[in-house]
Amino acid sequence: MSWQLLAFYVLAAVMLYSAFRVATVPNVAHAAVYLAVTFVGMAGLFLLLQAEFLAAVQVLVYVGAVMTLLIFAIALSDPRSLKPDSGPWARQLLSLRWGFLPLGISLLLFALLLYAYGSSPLPEVTRGTPPGVKELGRVILTTYLLPFEVASVLLLAALIGALAIARSSREGAE
């Protein structure tokens, strides 16, 4: 077994466990920490796929920015949300509404995806060389210039929208 395969299995095990804990751990703050572990593992997988720039962006954007936002939101939202989400784990799993339905839908989707992967043969393609930051920047600013501009407008709109939504409620309360 090569070290890449070993690293993949270790990362996959850590990520699957922490992703499962995000869905089941009662404490909201603990779920945020487990989500951060999943994001760091994803950066490791990007390194295995030889996407070094994406791994760096993953750590910067998800672990740096998104996790900070989530933790601030947990701290600023109602303190009751820090209490356990609902009753004991076994009872939640057995309850018809909140246990079986989400679990059933997720498992059904997983089975469908596995069936789709299993039934369709993957094409044999000559692999290209992984792009460096220079090549990636060239592609984004030439071939995909329009999506790039749309993404920047979207980010500006999200910035203004988030400010407006988070501010106006405060002024309305005064």
Binding site: M15, V22, S81, D85, W98, L103, L109, L113
Partner: peptide, 22 residues
Amino acid sequence: VLAAALFCLGLYAALRRRNAVL
């Protein structure tokens, strides 16, 4: 397979949780 499993776990978390942040 790993991406499919992670997607389904994310879906499970989104469907199961009642807290909007989660």
